[in-house]
């Protein structure tokens, strides 16, 4: 009974994956026929080396998050990955976003995650930290998605325009207080609601006995 259910689930899942790949490749084929802009081979400079190092840091950290058996190592991998993403922002001449990434993600979210790990992980129980289920199906889905995204990334002829990097902090400040004032205020409202909600959810309820 159980195996039959599993078989049906696998059949449906693979049919969905194959269908998605078929539909997407059919939609993509005109763009693919046009041919993507091949990266121009040039001398390998120091900046390229730094880029590949940062990209390796990002991907390696993410791989540690995904594959490590120990949740604490996963958190450290997340640290590496977030740092790498901040480095990518620097490469993309988005200085303010890079600094915000370091402040908010590494200074805030990661510390929060580490707190949650420490508070919820019982050291004595090893199996609670990480047994995983469905490696085959999860890996298949992730691999198919990765293949599709890579095809899109390298084969679509993106309309790339050469653009000079300029400092962004002051223009972003102006944009936030002029063009995006309403979303900005809404974000502050959401943060306030989050603050109150997180406190109410996480506190221990004190009951009158």
């Amino acid at each position: 009974m159980r195996t039959k259910k599993k078989l049906i689930a696998w059949t449906l899942g693979s049919a969905a994956v194959i269908g998605a790949v078929g539909v997407l490749s059919a939609r993509l084929s005109p763009a693919l026929a046009a041919g993507g802009a091949r990266p121009v081979a040039g001398p390998f400079t120091l900046a390229d080396g730094v880029f590949y190092a940062v990209a390796a840091l990002t991907v390696g950290g993410a791989a540690a998050v995904a594959l490590s058996r120990n949740i604490l190592y996963s958190a450290l991998g997340l640290l590496a990955s977030l740092l790498g993403v901040a480095g990518l922002y620097v490469f993309l001449s988005a200085d303010f976003v890079a600094v915000a990434q370091v402040f908010i993600y590494i200074g805030g979210v990661l510390v929060l995650i580490l707190f949650a790990v420490m508070l919820t992980n019982r050291i004595g129980e090893v199996n609670i930290s990480n047994a995983s289920l469905g490696w085959a199906s999860g890996g298949l889905l992730a691999a198919v998605l990765l293949g599709l995204l890579l095809v899109v990334a390298f084969e679509i002829p993106w309309a790339v325009r050469p653009m000079a990097g300029t400092p962004t902090t002051a223009p972003i400040g102006h944009a936030l207080l002029q063009q995006w004032l309403l979303p900005f205020e809404l974000a502050s409202l959401i943060l306030l609601a989050t603050l109150i909600g997180a406190i109410i959810i996480a506190r221990k309820e004190i009951r009158a006995e």
Binding site: P39, A55, V59, A62, S81, L145, L146, A153
Partner: peptide, 20 residues
């Protein structure tokens, strides 16, 4: 070779797949 748009998209794709 200078990192092009495709390089960044590839890194993001790997990151997304690992997150998924």
């Amino acid at each position: 070779m200078i990192p092009t748009l495709s390089h960044y998209l590839a890194v993001a794709a790997i990151l997304f797949a690992l997150g998924l």
